[in-house]
């Protein structure tokens, strides 16, 4: 009797853990790139160490990136980005927390390309804003790829550009996200 119960318990435990594992996808190598383009100067920065997790049951999607992990072509730009604009010692991370609004339409077990809308809150430089972005999810055997593109306004996040460089830094920053998710196993 006892042995039976224990084996039942073990099986039950295994089933529940596996069951839990399948509904979350994560990445620690999320790629986020942003572009600034003015007639005078163009530049971009890449961060390939974004953390992100999707809960397919609830549709929750979250992402967090370290500001200091953005890499620029020119080190001086990177220095100014951290020190003067993003103040990364004070505000080390940018965090997005949102929900996939049409989560029911995305089948994470069936390979294919799905369009999605995501609503959520983006926090950076100490300011939190509601944003809505379009995304596509590409489900394959290897994992889930999520791509999105949106525009962030510097003023919205209280990032001030001094007059002398106003023509070199765009007010509208294009942000691209390209994450490859893997099943989350505890």
């Amino acid at each position: 009797m006892i042995i039976k119960t224990i084996s039942f318990a073990v099986v039950a435990l295994l089933v529940t853990s596996v069951g839990l594992a399948q509904d979350k996808y994560f990445t620690k190598e999320g790629k986020i790139t942003f572009y600034s383009k003015t007639p005078v100067e163009e530049f971009d920065a890449v961060n390939s160490a974004g953390l992100s997790i999707i809960d397919t049951k609830t549709g929750a999607i979250e992402m967090s990136v370290l500001i200091k992990a953005f890499e620029f072509k020119k080190d001086l730009m990177q220095q100014h980005f951290n020190e003067n604009y993003m103040e990364s010692d004070k505000f080390p991370k940018a965090v997005f927390k949102g929900t996939i609004s049409n989560i029911a339409e995305i089948n994470f077990t069936k390979p294919g390309t799905y369009k999605a809308g995501i609503d959520g809150k983006l926090t950076m430089h100490g300011v939190t804003r509601d944003i809505t972005v379009d995304a596509i999810f590409i489900v394959s055997i290897a994992g889930v790829i999520a791509k999105s593109e949106f525009i962030a306004l510097l003023d919205d996040y209280n990032i001030k550009v001094p007059g002398v460089v106003k023509n070199q830094i765009s007010q509208q920053i294009k942000v691209e996200i390209d994450n490859t998710y893997k099943p989350y196993v505890k």
Partner: peptide, 26 residues
């Protein structure tokens, strides 16, 4: 048997409890 069942139920309950912060998992 009862004890084991009790722990089993407890385990399932705690495992399925809502995670307050998803990001803290990764």
């Amino acid at each position: 048997t009862r004890l084991i069942l009790f722990f089993l139920i407890f385990y399932i309950k705690s495992a399925s409890a809502q995670q307050p912060d998803l990001l803290s998992l990764v």
